[in-house]
Design a protein around this nucleic acid. Structure first.
Lengths: 153, 153
DNA sequence: CTTGAAAAGAACTGCCT
DNA sequence: AGGCAGTTCTTTTCAAG
């Protein structure tokens, strides 16, 4: 269960987290190992389940969705059934990008994108507030965001 | 500024958002267009700034980081200087994966990963609570997470 | 828009140290 | 574990219809 990574594995992960298109040859060149060596390490990370595929980064602003809002939602009624009802309903809203089931002051956290504030109000009133079992709602509007590699072992 | 995408562009974006390794040939096969056609569309999306690179998905649990916590942080003193001080200090914490500057009840939202709850307590006490200007802190522990394609135009 | 082909590069395999 | 040499596959680009 415990896969131990050395410094080179962590360096490869860090590079791939920044740019997933990097080839094994380029990775090897950067860190002074051969292409097959870098390739074998990447494949080992894949088979070990550390690397779970790749995603393209979509610039939502370029698509006209300039507003991102984080919502904390507390359910009014928290039975097992209502959790599933809520999740089914919330995943059907196109503007909801991320659904996080959390523990704490709120039960769910949502990442919602909209064209502008007026559009967000529409989503909030007609989609979010009408969700089954929804109670208290808290909102934070995104101003800027920075993603970092995070700890790698 | 307004780039109009047709249904095919949106379909390609949706596929690539799920798996960034899909080749132009495979994309074309799925949607009934030729490989060069699909390839040109993808490149057009790239040059238009809609596609901003690729990132590998790193399974933190496989690396021994089983705990993810979302923190809402309200600053005690909100001058221009303290925002920059806070951001510089918070981006230096390895366990902080995402830093979001937000508007609302909180000033910042952080995504923090840790090995376990004990490890998270260490990060919270020794790293987060000692950040310059930090005031009220709210925490939500992640139970599960689902990412959806989101609206594409 | 298509097909076909060619050039470049990346992925993968054995074998060797 | 890592490197070298080689094969196979895909991507990428171009020519031409």
């Amino acid at each position: 269960m415990t896969l131990d990574l050395d410094d080179l594995d962590r360096a490869l992960l860090r590079d791939l987290a920044r740019d997933g298109t990097l080839s094994a040859g380029e990775l090897g060149r950067r860190h002074g190992v051969s292409q097959p060596s870098a390739w074998r390490r990447v494949r080992r990370l894949e088979t070990a389940g550390v690397l779970k595929g790749q995603r393209v980064v979509v610039n939502r602003t370029a698509l006209g969705f300039g507003v991102t809002v984080f919502l904390g939602i507390k359910l009014a009624t928290k039975g097992r059934v209502s959790l599933e009802d809520f999740e089914r309903a919330v995943t059907a809203i196109p503007e909801v990008q991320v659904v996080q089931h959390v523990l704490g002051l709120f039960d769910y956290r949502l990442r919602v994108v909209a064209r502008d504030i007026a559009d967000f109000e529409r989503v909030l009133r007609r989609r979010i507030m009408t969700l089954p079992g929804v109670g208290q709602v808290e909102a934070n509007v995104l101003l800027s965001e920075e993603t970092r590699p995070g700890p790698l072992g």
